[in-house]
Amino acid sequence: MVEIRWHSRAGQGAVTGAKGLGSVVATTGKQVQAYALYGSAKRGAAMNAYNRIDDNPITNHETKMYPDFVFVIDPALAFTDDITKNDKPETKYIITTHLSKDELIAKIPALQDKVERTFVVDCMQISLDTIGRTMPNTPVLGAFMKVSKLYELDFFLDNMKKVLSKFPQKIIDANMAAITRAYNEVK
């Protein structure tokens, strides 16, 4: 079982990202869950989304998880959310930031014993450059492919195109560029 917790703001596409990841993974015969914890959340409010991935049907409906991966897709949430909640010794962190990894870790005490497990990528800048607005949900999946080695980049891109097929070609291309850049730039 692979478990992922997203830290996001409502409107940044975490739910769509989590469902997109689930859709790609399901095409490979695996079982998935994608869900979010929000009640009457308004745009901009901090929220969590979650993924579970397994070879067998997933029957756990407990919301709380001990994640294998934590995605922080809003830079400020790295400072204000409890991003290391329910940490395991092998939990990996993929954090959106314009800071270098050293600069970021210096500012966040909870990450200081998790240096090897922390990865940074600037999904905000990447999505601004490629998609034209801050939409960090798809780039973080590129970074995730690099860090997790779950799938080859090309395989993931091909399947993600199918998930996005209802969008205009221009938007699909921009998302592919964002995913590719994040894959290459995550450190």
Binding site: Q33, P57, I58, H61
Partner: peptide, 8 residues
């Protein structure tokens, strides 16, 4: 738990 959770 069911209505908003995407699954296979």
């Amino acid at each position: 738990t069911t209505s908003h959770k995407a699954q296979n």
